[in-house]
C-alpha cells in the first residue's frame, strides 16, 4: 500500500513541476517585509501604527475613503493606542454632515469619537470625476483585499508558517514601485507606470516622497523613524493592516489560550484512551 502511494505521489509531483513554466507572469513578486505582526505571537507596533495613521491622514485621506473605521477604533485595545482624549480632540477637527434636524435641514457639526472616518468625496462618482475617472478604492480592508499568487509549494508551507502578509507586502511594493516606463511601453496621459501594479498602468500618481510627512521626534530631537518614502510606505501599510484586522491581537492571544487548552485536553484524552483500550488489547495475551 505504501509503495503504491509513493509511486502515485511521484507521478503527481512530476506533473506538478512539469506544468508551471507558463504560470510566471511579468509582474514581479513583492518583497517580504519583517512585520512585527507576523506569526502566532505577532503584535502591532503602536508607534508604527500612529506614524502610519499620520501618513494616511495627511496623504491617502485626500482621495481615499476609509468608511468602515471609526475614530473610536484608534483608542481601542490592540490598535495604535491613542488615548480617548486624543481621539476626541482629533474627531472634533472634522466637520461631519448630520441630520435632518427637526426643521428638516441637514447640518454640519464637529465630529465625535463614534463617527466613521468621513469620506473626502460625497460619492463614488464625485471621487472618480476628481481623480481622472478612476475611483480611489476605500482603504478599510484593502490590506486583506490585495494579494499575489504564492504558487506551489509555498501555499502549502503557508498553512504551517501562518504567512498571510501578501496584502500588506503588496501595498509596500506598490507604494514604492513607481518608476519610468521601460522602452516601448506607452503610458497614457494622466496614468503612471508601477512595477508591481497588475498591468503596470495605474491611475494613482506616486503618493509618497521623502520628507513629505513629519514624524514625531524622539528626546534627542531626531524623527522617530526615517522620513523616507520607503518608511512611509511600510508605516501606512502596517496601519492599513490594523484597519483591516483590528482584532488581530485579541485573535492571536485567544488562539494561544485555546490551543494550549486543547493540547492539554488531547494529552489527557490520549492517556485515557490508552488506559481504557488496554483492557481489551492485553486480553488477547492471556
Amino acid at each position: 500500500m505504501k509503495l503504491a502511494m509513493l509511486r502515485t505521489l511521484a507521478v503527481a509531483a512530476g506533473l506538478a513541476f512539469a506544468a508551471p513554466a507558463f504560470a510566471a507572469g511579468e509582474t514581479p513578486v513583492p518583497p517580504q517585509n519583517d512585520w512585527t505582526f507576523n506569526g502566532p505571537f505577532g503584535r502591532f507596533d503602536k508607534t508604527q501604527l500612529q506614524r502610519g495613521f499620520k501618513v494616511y491622514k495627511e496623504v491617502c485621506a485626500a482621495c481615499h475613503s476609509m468608511g468602515l473605521v471609526s475614530f473610536r477604533n484608534l483608542s481601542q485595545e490592540g490598535g495604535p493606542g491613542f488615548t480617548a482624549g486624543q481621539v476626541k480632540a482629533l474627531a472634533e477637527t472634522y466637520q461631519i454632515k448630520d441630520g435632518p434636524n427637526d426643521a428638516g435641514d441637514m447640518f454640519e457639526r464637529p465630529g465625535r469619537a463614534a463617527d466613521r472616518f468621513p469620506a473626502p468625496f460625497p460619492n463614488k462618482q464625485a471621487a472618480a470625476a476628481a481623480n481622472g475617472g478612476a475611483y480611489p478604492p476605500d482603504l478599510s480592508v484593502i490590506a486583506k483585499a490585495r494579494t499575489y499568487e504564492r504558487g506551489f509549494p509555498w501555499f502549502v508551507f503557508d498553512m504551517a508558517t501562518t504567512f498571510q502578509q501578501q496584502g500588506v507586502d503588496y501595498l509596500v511594493a506598490l507604494l514604492t514601485g513607481y518608476e519610468d516606463a521601460p522602452a516601448g511601453v506607452e503610458v497614457p496621459a494622466g496614468k503612471y507606470y508601477n512595477k508591481y501594479f497588475p498591468g503596470h498602468i495605474i491611475s494613482m500618481p506616486n503618493p509618497l516622497s521623502d520628507g513629505a510627512v513629519e514624524y514625531p521626534k524622539t528626546a534627542d530631537g531626531r524623527p522617530q523613524a526615517p522620513e523616507t518614502a520607503r518608511q512611509y510606505a511600510k508605516d501606512v501599510a502596517a496601519f492599513l493592516m490594523w484597519a483591516a484586522e483590528p482584532h488581530m491581537e485579541a485573535r492571536k492571544a485567544l488562539g494561544f489560550k485555546v490551543l494550549s487548552f486543547l493540547l492539554l485536553f488531547a494529552g489527557l484524552l490520549y492517556f485515557t484512551k490508552k488506559k481504557i483500550w488496554s483492557r481489551v488489547e492485553s486480553a488477547a495475551a492471556h
Binding site: K144, T162, Q164, G255, F256, V258, L259
Partner: peptide, 10 residues
Amino acid sequence: CWFVFYTPNF
C-alpha cells in the same frame, strides 16, 4: 483552531 486563530483568511 489553527486556521481560525492564526491564518483565518488562508
